[in-house]
Design a binder for these strands. Structure first.
Lengths: 188, 188
DNA sequence: TCCATACTATACCGACCGGTATATTTTGTC
DNA sequence: GACAAAATATACCGGTCGGTATAGTATGGA
């Protein structure tokens, strides 16, 4: 009965499958079983719908990553915690993660990319913060936190891609392998 | 004077900046200084324009990666050669690589994703082939070639992302660091 | 019971979409 | 220079786009 939530659910499903630009507001409201004025009652525009959707969906991921990324002196354990959070989220909410991934890599001047940028920036800061804090304990990785954060997230997303496309189950083993390869290399 | 090439150039520029779906054929032809029938003389449709563009642009990347990925008994050297090829291409043709990256991560039922899938599949086969061949020499990494190929490409793309967004210069040092971290871990 | 507010539907807007029928110009060949 | 073919322009098509003016209905408080 909550048409606002229903509209967000339907928008998520359609955006994740076809992309924000390729989906019209007509398709969203028909899929949701309502009419356009209902959508425009809750959201000012198509872009407003997207912003509200990201606030709900990307916000969830962000808080889970934020919790998982609290550094407690053990870099390996922290990175495993982060990988676990990403993998769990991607498995629990595949459409949501697909959409965010697609928007992250979408064209830099597209609405979708601009809408998701605040959220990806926060993710980036969280991950870099882990390596900056770890650098206080272990030397060596100073000034490289940006590369490490980007590299880790790139590897995590690569594994999530294998999960989406090839059905790789993202249990404890991939978490262990991902982090240990990152820390100790391919032969670890 | 070659309007066909000019149309492809303009389409690449616009697609890479705004995304395939957000760019209209009107915008392409106006940017190119021609009219629509000229575009439809060379390409059957907007999708045909995209296919021709990918054949030209993604084909270039593919052949360069194919050459770089010839395994010659030294896995580290081969991976460095691959990273060098990707980095060089991304730096020499940023709009082209941006567009391909965006389409690779675009929604699975979008035209853009379907159009680029053959090319990404070939890249994947090339990279997996390297690890499969290397597995004949070194044990250990058998049956994990898919994860290694995905992980390596994920890391490479992460570095290219830092190049695009933060101006990281992709010279020999990032090549060395990327591959050695992949092979031997973060402290190598 | 009255009223304000939140919500939803019908019907419509101008602009733009991808694509084309037709006509004209350029170009290479003999 | 005649002529066919390739290339380009004008003008237009039906359909869909994001968005809205207007009106009606449901709902909860006084």
């Amino acid at each position: 009965m909550d048409n606002r939530q229903r509209l967000l659910d339907c928008a998520l499903d359609l955006f994740s499958r076809y992309g924000y630009d390729a989906v019209s507001v007509r398709e969203v409201v028909e899929y949701a079983g309502v009419t356009k004025p209902t959508l425009y009652h809750y959201f000012d525009s198509k872009r407003g719908l997207l912003d509200a959707l990201l606030k709900r969906e990307a916000g969830r991921l962000l808080t889970e990553v934020l919790v998982a990324a609290r550094y407690q002196g053990d870099l390996v354990a922290t990175l495993e915690s982060i990988a676990r959070a990403y993998f769990a989220f991607a498995q629990a909410h595949p459409a949501c993660y697909r959409m965010q991934l697609g928007m992250y890599f979408s064209a830099p001047e597209s609405e979708a990319n601009q809408a998701i940028r605040p959220f990806t920036n926060q993710q980036r800061e969280i991950l870099e913060g882990v390596f900056i804090q770890a650098a206080e304990d272990q030397g060596n990785l100073r000034t490289r936190h940006a590369r490490y954060a980007a590299g880790l997230l790139g590897t995590i997303n690569a594994m999530i891609g294998l999960h989406f496309n090839d059905g790789l189950v993202l249990g404890e083993e991939p978490i262990y392998l991902t982090v240990h390869q990152f820390m100790y290399g391919i032969f670890s």
